[in-house]
C-alpha cells in the first residue's frame, strides 16, 4: 500500500510539472491578452503529434526544440490573423477559440487518423522503486519541465520584455501611454503560451497515448488548475498544478483516473465557495 502511494505521488508530481507548463501558458495568455484560449489544449495535441512523427521518422529529442518553434509561430499567426480584432473581450475570445479548437482537432483527425498512437520511450532504462519498475524518462521530464519553468521565471522577472509583459497585464492603457508596444508584447506572449503547451505535448507523448481528443483533456485539467490557483497568477498556477497533480496521482491509486478528475472538480468547487478568486489569486 505504502509503496503504491509513493509511486502514485511520484506520478502526480511528474504530471503536475507537465500540467504546470500547459496551465501557465493558458494563464499568461489570459493575464496579458485577456484571451481565454480554448484552443490551448490543441497546441498540446500538436506538440504530441510532432513528437510522434519525429520519433517514428527521425529523433524524438529534436521534437523538443522543433515543436515549440513551429507551434509558437502558428500561435503567433492565429493571434495576429484571427484573435487580434476581438482581444480584450474574454467571452467572445472563448467562443471563437472553441471554434478554432474544433477546426484544429478535426484537421488532426483527417490528417493523422483517429487511432490512438503510442510513442516509444526515448530513454528505455527503468529503475526499481519499492519493487515497482519506474521509467527514468519521467525523471528527465520533470527536470526538463523544471528548467523551462525557471527560464520562464527569468524571462518574466529579469528581462525587459518580461517586465513589459507584466506591465501590460497590470494596466494595458497605462503601458501604452508609457510607450510600450503592446501589440508586440501580445504577440510574443501568445507565442510563448503556445510553445509551452507544445513542449508539454512533446514531453507527455511517450507517457500517454497520442490521440486527436487529448487536447480536451489537457484543457479541462489546465482550466481547473488555473481557476484553483487564480487565473492570471503564474505562481498560483504553478502551485495549483502541483497540488492537483498530486491529488489526482494519489486518488488514481485507489480509483479510476476519471474519478480522480471528479475529485479535482470537487476541490475546485470548494475553493470557489471559500475564495472565488482562487487560492493564490490577487482579488478581482
Amino acid at each position: 500500500m505504502f509503496e503504491q502511494l509513493v509511486v502514485g505521488m511520484l506520478n502526480g508530481f511528474v504530471w503536475g510539472m507537465i500540467a504546470a507548463l500547459i496551465a501557465i501558458g493558458l494563464t499568461l495568455v489570459f493575464g496579458v491578452l485577456r484571451i481565454v484560449n480554448a484552443a490551448h489544449g490543441e497546441f498540446y495535441l500538436l506538440g504530441a503529434l510532432i513528437a510522434w512523427l519525429f520519433s517514428l521518422k527521425f529523433n524524438f529529442w529534436a521534437a523538443l526544440f522543433v515543436a515549440p518553434l513551429i507551434v509558437g509561430f502558428a500561435g503567433i499567426a492565429i493571434e495576429r490573423g484571427i484573435l487580434r480584432p476581438i482581444e480584450d473581450n474574454p467571452i467572445i475570445t472563448l467562443i471563437v477559440t472553441l471554434g478554432l479548437m474544433l477546426i484544429i482537432q478535426q484537421s488532426a483527425l483527417i490528417i493523422f487518423g483517429g487511432a490512438p498512437q503510442r510513442v516509444k520511450l526515448p530513454i528505455p532504462d527503468l529503475i526499481q522503486i519499492f519493487g515497482y519498475t519506474y521509467p527514468v524518462y519521467r525523471f528527465v521530464v520533470t527536470i526538463i519541465a523544471g528548467i523551462v519553468l525557471i527560464l520562464l521565471w527569468i524571462f518574466l522577472y529579469k528581462t525587459n520584455l518580461g517586465m513589459l509583459a507584466r506591465a501590460s497585464q497590470a494596466d494595458r492603457e497605462l503601458a501604452m501611454m508609457m510607450g510600450v508596444d503592446v501589440n508586440y508584447v501580445y504577440m510574443i506572449t501568445f507565442g510563448i503560451g503556445a510553445a509551452l503547451a507544445a513542449l508539454a505535448g512533446v514531453l507527455a507523448a511517450p507517457i500517454v497515448t497520442v490521440f486527436f481528443l487529448m487536447g480536451i483533456d489537457a484543457l479541462i485539467l489546465s482550466f481547473i488548475i488555473t481557476i484553483v490557483g487564480g487565473l492570471g497568477s503564474v505562481k498560483g498556477t504553478f502551485l495549483a498544478a502541483i497540488l492537483i497533480g498530486e491529488v489526482e496521482g494519489i486518488v488514481s491509486v485507489f480509483a479510476s483516473p476519471i474519478i480522480a478528475r471528479v475529485v479535482s472538480l470537487l476541490i475546485l468547487c470548494v475553493v470557489l465557495v471559500i475564495k472565488p478568486t482562487g487560492m493564490w489569486g490577487e482579488g478581482d
Partner: peptide, 11 residues
C-alpha cells in the same frame, strides 16, 4: 468531420 463546419460557424 462536420465539427469543422460547427467550428467555422461558431467563429
Amino acid at each position: 468531420n462536420h465539427p469543422i463546419i460547427l467550428g467555422i460557424l461558431l467563429i
